[in-house]
């Protein structure tokens, strides 16, 4: 975090020293772009905080720790697709799942979809790339997540 902050400040200063006009232009682009996604971003944050309240960690853990491993994998990838959890929540949660003897296959499906597929981020993605591309990218990522999960399962000796 501090690194990112320092790099940004440093680059702005360097840029300013070399070319004031270009720096101002850059800042204008930054403000404009940020302003455009501000509202969809806030909407997403509102939804994430409400959904995370409705589906707390315990519920996720409970559902994924018993039952069939294939249906659990699918369930994990669906839960992972809806929510977009930041890493500082997602990985400790995955750690809990591991301690509860949830299979690596299920955890893999969960974390990969968490990172790659986002139904809640879809409105923002759509702003940049349009509905079609955003849709295709998300579907593609979902399939990748399932493949990764199955291979993880095989390599951890959970399937064969």
């Amino acid at each position: 975090m501090i690194i990112l902050f320092s790099i940004t400040v440093l680059l702005v200063i360097v840029s300013f020293l070399f070319n004031v006009k270009k720096t101002v232009k850059g800042m204008k682009i930054a403000v404009k772009r940020f302003g455009k996604i501000l509202i969809p971003l806030l909407i997403m944050l509102v939804l994430v905080s409400v959904i995370l309240y409705l589906i707390p960690e315990q519920v996720i853990t409970e559902y994924l720790s018993d039952g069939n491993r294939y249906s659990n994998t699918l369930l994990a990838s669906i839960i992972g697709s809806i929510t977009m959890l930041p890493g500082f929540i997602a990985f400790p949660l995955s750690g809990i799942l591991k301690d509860k003897h949830v299979t690596y296959m299920v955890i893999s499906a969960f974390t990969t979809t968490l990172m790659m597929v986002g139904i809640l981020t879809f409105p923002i993605e759509k702003e940049y790339f349009g509905v079609k591309v955003a849709l295709l990218r998300n579907i593609m990522s979902f399939v990748i997540a399932l493949v990764v999960a199955v291979i993880t399962g095989i390599l951890f000796g959970e399937l064969l």
């Binding site: 975090m1 902050f5 940004t8 702005v12 840029s15 232009k25 850059g26 800042m27 403000v31 772009r33």
Partner: peptide, 16 residues
């Protein structure tokens, strides 16, 4: 914390 930095860097990238 992250986004303003990201957008400033994007702005500089586009300008330079």
């Amino acid at each position: 914390l992250v986004l303003p930095c990201a957008f400033i860097l994007i702005g500089l990238f586009e300008a330079w």
